[in-house]
Design a protein around this nucleic acid. Structure first.
Lengths: 328, 328
DNA sequence: CGCACCCCTGAGAGCGCTCTCACCGCAAGG
DNA sequence: CCTTGCGGTGAGAGCGCTCTCAGGGGTGCG
């Protein structure tokens, strides 16, 4: 009943079985260097026969290249995880990294500097995709991470960035609200220190100013709870508000809940629009008008950039399209 | 402008700075073995002074212990990620593992056997928490993972399990529906091959049978989309249904959306209840009646079990409480 | 025929750490 | 006085892999 204490199958075993040296076996397996067809075959057969599985850790120690892609969620609160945005990001990253033999780790990075340094000289880390970046975070990205890091949202000269076209998407939404006759449009933004979405705010402000409409800004925190609180503030400050543009869907859903509670009809009294088009957006009552956010594509591009190093476009903006539903 | 190619600070450096051997430095740092107070101090000072950061990979190679906890999402479709359930799980696991110096990786495990073997002899893996387990998966858990694995949901003699009290929670819900006068109660379950929630189904069946009410079961897939589809089936087969118990909140939210579309009032015509109490549950219209699911506690317990090995209770069931809102 | 290649291969030195083992000195016991 | 025993220490052998480097055997060219 007791198993023999099965020893790990090592490269040495493969080499021996194939009748070659460890070095040659390594060359064949990792494809780094020449090998005669005959030898190649013998090694491959041995690998298959023995069920050899290279030891990533040892490989990493020897070569210095990591085997996992870290998705670093930068932020003061882990609350951002509530946003189904992250799910899509992880799924896409995992899919992209898989062919590289790289796994994906999700990591919450409370304050940037020390933790990023840690990531930088962790041998097991192949690269880092930053989510929710602030400018302070970008500044804290250690040089050792150069060419192995990408950011979802804002970037810098050293950190390539990948993002949805916030300006265009938001502009489409605000214009849609305006076009449908709304004139007292409020916006619930994210936390003020997160520049991820400043462009959205600017789009909103631009339209307001160019049409001479009042700017009504309240900060949320990307979460539904934050949206609820912010919506209450909006109603208190500007009870005649007839439309709300929320920085993301979770916020919008929170806003709708508060409006409903307080007896406002959506969209008849107050129109509400979000951003991201998360799965629950179309399930809300009324179904949420929002702007699509190709999170999968974006994260995938970022992951590719990190894994391919410089062989790939350093940054990109992905288009967002207006998703018209019932709420606005 | 160009940095000197800063060499990594190794244990060797620390040892030299402290005037001791590498072995002694190692002993002090990992606390494995005796050391005189004087030496201990000198080593600690050197560590702080040099900013030494042990190399997890090398450590792992040498000692054979891993440095990451893998949350394995077992399933045929990655769709389960849509469920905000996973967010809470990851957050809790990360928090629990952090003091152990262990990071958390999320991994999607399509088919169990080969991938679990891979995890089992990946040196970097300290342990595995299985989510969404089937019995086939449990059977495929390799012996090498013994004492390093836990399952959220069903378990086996070799795999400790941690779960919410599905039976009690579901029972509370079904009884609540019954007590509020519903008599034609349908249930939307999960995928038939996933036993995670069989107990819930059984609770439902028990009440139906004991009261002589008809059993109306339709399978969903834990997702909102699946819930929508299943709800349509329910309405087609049993148009007089006056209550729906959904296996989880995402499913329930999907069901509510379909009911609304098709002109049924919730809860007046059809009451709907879910399970899990995800963040969006209280935001839906009407707010969702559901049963709480202490995912955080559960995953945390599982993680602890994995990290502590046998020093901890091998399994546990966590209580669920009925969350009465507007939908039922 | 000699020389310069080039293709392929093996020996061996690490990567940074842990851990076993042997050793040294000193206090306690016979 | 010699034995034990024990807290403290260092030398050194790996963990499994990669990679440099030197060499061996062909071919092409002068």
């Amino acid at each position: 009943m007791t198993m023999p204490p099965t020893r790990r199958i090592t490269l040495e075993d493969v080499a021996k079985a194939a009748g070659v040296s460890r070095a040659t076996a390594s060359r064949v397996i990792s494809g780094s260097g020449p090998a005669s067809p005959d030898v190649r075959d013998r090694v491959r057969t041995a690998v298959r026969h023995l069920g050899y599985q290279p030891d990533q850790v040892a490989r990493s120690l020897a070569s210095g290249t990591g085997f996992r892609l870290v998705i670093a969620i930068v932020g003061t609160t882990p609350r951002v995880l509530d946003d189904p945005y992250v799910d899509r990001a992880v799924a896409a990253a995992a899919e992209t990294a898989s062919p590289y033999g790289v796994g994906v780790s999700l990591q919450w990075v409370p304050r940037a500097a020390p933790r990023l340094d840690k990531l930088a000289d962790d041998r097991s880390v192949r690269g880092v995709v930053l989510i929710n970046t602030t400018e302070a975070t970008l500044a804290a990205v250690p040089a050792a991470l150069h060419r192995r890091v990408a950011s979802i949202g804002i970037g810098s000269s050293r950190v390539p960035s990948f993002d949805v076209d916030n300006a265009a998407g938001s502009s489409a939404i605000v214009h849609h609200l305006y076009a449908s006759g709304r004139r007292r449009i409020a916006m619930v933004t994210g936390p003020p220190w997160l520049p991820c979405a400043w462009r959205s705010v600017r789009s909103y402000q631009n339209l307001m100013r160019s049409t001479g409409l009042p700017v009504r800004l309240v900060a949320g925190d990307f979460s539904a709870a934050g949206g609820q609180q912010a919506m209450r503030t909006v109603l208190r400050r500007w009870p005649d508000t007839d439309a709300v543009f929320a920085i993301n869907d979770a916020t919008a859903l929170g806003a709708i809940a508060v409006l409903r509670e307080s007896g406002h009809r959506v969209p008849d009294d107050v129109a509400v629009a979000g951003f991201d088009d998360i799965p629950f957006a179309e399930l809300s009552a009324p179904a949420l008008t929002t702007a699509s956010h190709p999170v999968g594509q974006i994260v995938s591009a970022a992951a590719t950039a990190v894994l391919e190093g410089s062989r790939v476009a350093p940054a990109a903006i992905f288009p967002s399209t207006l998703v018209r539903r019932a709420s606005a």
